[in-house]
Amino acid sequence: MKSDQAAISEHLFTLRDYIRWTLSEFHRHQVYFGHGHATAWDEACQLVLNAVDLPWDTDPAVLDARLLPAESMRVQEFVRQRTLERKPLPYITGEAWFMGLPFQVDERVLIPRSPIAELIEQGFEPWLRPGPVGRILDLCTGSGCIGIACALAFPEAEVDLADISGDALEVARQNIARYELEERVYARQGDLFAAVPGARYDLIVSNPPYVDQNDLADMPEEYGHEPALALGSGSDGLDITRRILREAGSHLAEDGLLVVEVGNSEVHLMSSLPELPLVWVELERGGNGVFVITAADLRAHQHLL
């Protein structure tokens, strides 16, 4: 009896064939999509094209091209990891996209997917005060995608990428080098603001761990590949966010701005700190749980924290 691999290679020939087969395997194994693609079709296309070293925007005419035996084996291996190991596609390919930019990723860092990208594209208007931005902090940086995107959006700024995880910062440094930003983007290791003692910033942006215990227990298998340190944050998901709120005031410039994503823990934060004047951002492209607060408002309400 022929092996499954041999049978697949005998009956599938073109990129289009392999995309169809990949799509069927996704449905057969009921994989979860939440790490870069919203639909099975988009992810099947991305998986197959990446496996044969073609970009995502390849001319559709290429879909009728045949695969070499080695390419067929690589597609099949990618599908095996995705369906049987439940490994998110960016960990298989080693690359994720954020704000239209590619970033290197592996299982040392969270896969970029923050809706904060929308705010960066808008220059954080209308919340960030007008004028040049001198210093930016990306707190809990992971891969460095938020801070690096900020550095590209504000070319006059110096940016610190802070994280408690040395492993994560190794990935962040690879991405700093990828964008040739070594002269104004710096990786800093430490527990929150301990990584940048005494520093003050015009803008602090953070996508900290914020998943509460109930959500963490119910997450699809794919999330088990991401570092636990980057996901959970206490029973209501807000342990780290509360620390950020307490400590950020002393690290913001007088007219500085704090931007934090807390996802579904937005409900817990609203109920636990109802008098704190957080502005919840309405996101045009979906997502939730991103708030902004000025340095002035944060300091004026420090007694609540």
Rank of each mutant, 00 (worst) to 15 (best):
M1I: 14
Q5E: 13
A6G: 03
H11L: 13
L12Y: 09
L12N: 02
L12D: 09
H29T: 03
H29G: 04
Q30C: 01
Y32N: 10
A38W: 01
A40W: 06
A40D: 11
W41N: 12
W41T: 14
D42G: 12
E43R: 01
E43C: 03
Q46C: 12
L47A: 13
L47D: 07
V48I: 07
P55N: 11
D59G: 08
V62C: 09
P88K: 01
I92G: 01
W97T: 12
W97M: 12
G100K: 05
P102W: 00
P102M: 08
Q104Y: 13
D106A: 09
L119M: 15
I120N: 00
E121Q: 15
Q122A: 15
F124W: 10
F124Q: 08
V133S: 06
G134S: 13
R135P: 05
R135E: 13
R135D: 10
S143N: 03
C145K: 04
A151R: 03
L152V: 04
A153V: 07
A153W: 11
P155G: 02
E156A: 14
D160I: 09
L161A: 10
D163G: 01
S165H: 04
G166F: 00
D167R: 09
L169I: 12
E170P: 00
V171Y: 08
A172K: 03
Q174M: 14
I176A: 04
R178Q: 13
E182I: 07
R184M: 11
R184V: 11
Y186D: 02
Y186H: 14
Y201F: 13
S206C: 15
P208W: 07
Y210D: 07
D212A: 10
Q213V: 06
D218W: 03
P220G: 03
E221R: 11
E222C: 03
E222W: 11
H225M: 01
E226L: 07
P227R: 10
P227I: 11
A228D: 10
A230K: 04
G234K: 05
D236T: 08
I240P: 05
R246V: 02
E247C: 11
S250T: 14
S250C: 05
S250Q: 15
H251F: 06
A253L: 12
N264Y: 14
E266L: 00
V267Y: 12
S272D: 09
P277M: 06
E284S: 15
R285A: 13
G286Q: 04
G287M: 08
F291R: 03
V292E: 05
A296W: 02
A296C: 01
H301E: 09
Q302C: 04
L304F: 10
